[in-house]
Amino acid sequence: MANLLWLQGGACSGNTMSFLNAEEPSACDLVTDFGINVLWHPSLGLELGENLRRMLDAIVSGEIAMDIFVFEGTVVNAPNGTGEWNRFCGRPMKDWVADLAKVATFTVAVGDCATWGGIPATAPNPSESEGLQFLKREHGGFLGKDYTSKAGLPVINIPGCPAHPDWITQIVVAVATGRGGDLTLDEFQRPKTFFTSFTQTGCTRNMHFAYKVSATEFGQRKGCLFYDLGCRGPMTHSPCNRILWNRVSSKTRAGMPCLGCTEPEFPFFDLEPGTVFKTQTVMGAPKDMPTGVDKAGYIKLTAAAKAASPAWAEEDLFVV
């Protein structure tokens, strides 16, 4: 039996909605098949008011063991570092997070807000939001860069806006079944099993990427979304085209650009007008090249690919 507590800070509940849609394994499977005891969750917990307060106090004191502490949403520090804008069970949520993180065997940040601050931490960040152990790319965050849970691991970051349901439940199961020590994390503390490949890996539009045929409008059945519509698939670490959403599709398969929501900078360019769904360019060339590609190589590749492109690459294909 592994006790799990899930709390929300500055959040939209998107990751909770995602979690409840999990299929492999489902949220119910966590309880029935993997021995996870959900102590409390904002959408599932039974305790209210003083009863919840007593439970949290018991967890902090060690009376109730907490094996997995899942946090969704930002840690809100406003106003002036007090955290009073986000109170929970009689005190600022940030104080609960500080106390609970000390007694957690594993601490898991779910979604962009909890991992790096996400949309709430976008400039000018009026809620003084930060992630558990990062603020955007800056290591530290609310718990500090030296934080480790009782298991000796830093915060396990499962980013995304929202995170894919199965990324959440599969990591929770790994931790709950004693395989937490097998997790290898990348430089942003994301499990490598999910965040080593790119969103582009498995994208059905890769042939259009290869032949430099661009989609010019949302939902088109031909063309790559990287060249004009701001798709960040070639630069974003996620398995969105390997572990499909609702088991059937992904944004790029449906003709919508990847927004790069598993990367610390999301939302990119601080949501300046004209930066969303539009590839940013300098003198006609993309400002952000696919990871590992330089501009000279990109231009040479474009010339060769265009010259070699087959006629079918310009026609509508069923790429969903």
């Binding site: 045929v213 010019t216 265009k306 010259a307």
Partner: peptide
């Protein structure tokens, strides 16, 4: 020829 909007076989500019 190298522009992203150019469709080689149709000899067409696909910028809407």
């Amino acid at each position: 020829m190298e522009c992203m909007y150019y469709l080689v076989h149709r000899k067409w500019c696909d910028l809407p």
